Amino acid sequence: MKQALSIEQMKHLQEFGLDTSDASMTWMLYPYEEDKQPKLSLREWNTFKEPFRIQHCIPAFTLLDVLELLPKEIKTGTDNYWLTMSHDSEKWYICYSEFDYYKEFRSHSLIDAAYDMLCWCIEEEYVKVGEDE
């Protein structure tokens, strides 16, 4: 089961201008001694201090981190849509819905569906990034 967003997904969020400094986890190469073959591992972000973080760590959001960033409600004109999650026989889906779906993403992994929703919310400016935060 996928515990955190991938390095590529985190870099994409950083390209949007999203502050990732409050991520729960970090990707790092370990061990970082020259004579040993490093392996990528997932660790708790708060256990590493600057400047080590900058040199060796890439922040990684967990599912809870992503859900905390998503708006719980979206208003469009006179309609209100609420964040909901569910699972059918094959995939997870996360959507904003009232009686009808406003926007929906499906994936075998709930964290990937939530990531796709977060990207959409940033693009649609439902989640503010950079100087707008």
Rank of each mutant, 00 (worst) to 15 (best):
E34T: 05
Y93F: 09
K128I: 15
S107C: 15
W120C: 14
Y30F: 09
K2G: 02
M85E: 13
D35H: 00
E133M: 09
P59D: 13
Y93N: 08
L70Y: 02
P31Q: 06
K128H: 14
T76W: 01
W92K: 04
C57F: 03
R43W: 09
E33D: 11
W92E: 06
E44F: 03
P31A: 08
E8F: 00
D100I: 13
E8C: 02
P38I: 06
A23Y: 00
G17A: 07
W27Q: 11
Q55E: 10
C121D: 13
A114E: 11
K91S: 13
Q3S: 10
Y101P: 10
K36D: 12
E90V: 13
T84Y: 07
I7A: 02
P71L: 10
I7N: 04
C95I: 05
T62E: 07
K39Y: 06
M117D: 13
D100W: 06
A60F: 02
T47A: 09
A114P: 08
Y30H: 06
I7T: 05
W27G: 13
V129T: 12
D100Y: 07
P71D: 13
H12I: 15
P31K: 02
L118I: 10
E124P: 01
L110Q: 11
I74T: 08
L29N: 11
L83D: 06
V129R: 00
V127N: 08
V66N: 04
Y101M: 14
A113R: 05
D35I: 02
S24G: 11
Y96C: 12
R43D: 14
Y93H: 07
R43T: 15
E50G: 02
E98H: 04
T62M: 02
E90W: 03
L70F: 03
H56T: 14
G77E: 11
S86I: 07
S109C: 09
S41M: 12
D112L: 04
H12A: 12
L5A: 10
I7K: 01
Y115H: 11
L18G: 04
A60R: 00
V66H: 00
E125L: 08
L29M: 12
D35Y: 00
